[in-house]
Design a protein around this nucleic acid. Structure first.
Lengths: 96, 96
DNA sequence: GAAGTATTTAGAGAATTTTCGAAATAGTTT
DNA sequence: AAACTATTTCGAAAATTCTCTAAATACTTC
């Protein structure tokens, strides 16, 4: 359920690029949008998906919305993937 | 480029379930299809995407095509994700 | 409180993805 | 080689995702 949303969120190249941007430091929606050749509305749409996947969190300051990474959700994906990497990890099969 | 194909491949729940199935043991296309409420053609389509993402390999035997996991490609995804997991991994920024 | 700035939401079109049934391919068995 | 089995490919419909412009929200500053 949650994992599905998360994997879908990360499947889009624009959204992965946004995550890369945020890896450096938190940024406002406008700053993020400035890195792309897309409308502000489109970037906002991508940010919404990242938010609902839990990959980023938002904090309001003045009239800016600052986005930053939320590391813990990445770890869920890592856990899921790790079981396939030949390391013969735990056998939990939930939530494919 | 390759990473994009791989992340897209893993974004679909049917395909993730196929990977789960293959984690137990290799299976023919028909065996895989039997686990789903989908036509053989549809499962074949998903298998093609998994194949072109490099997540599975195929070997022919009699007139069966056996699919099995290819662990190494999972590791590429793990590497990409790991950098976001708070562990402050390497700084390589290629191929978002 | 009016004007301005930052951002999201709404509505709609374009593009991509998923699905199916039918036909094609390829190998096997008799 | 004819009939059978396993699987893929084709063509098209349905569903989902991505994008845009325009309008709405919400906060700040003058």
């Amino acid at each position: 359920m949650a994992l599905n949303t998360t994997f879908k969120a990360i499947a889009d190249p624009v959204r992965r690029q946004i995550l890369e941007e945020l890896r450096q430091n938190r940024q406002s929606a406008g700053e993020i949008a400035a890195h792309f050749n897309l409308s502000q509305a489109t970037v906002s749409y991508h940010l919404k998906l990242l938010r609902s996947a839990g990959l980023v969190t938002v904090t309001k300051e003045k009239n800016y919305l600052y986005y930053e990474l939320n590391a813990s959700v990445f770890e869920e994906m890592l856990t899921w993937l790790y079981r396939f990497s030949g390391k013969q990890g735990d056998d939990n099969n939930d939530e494919a």
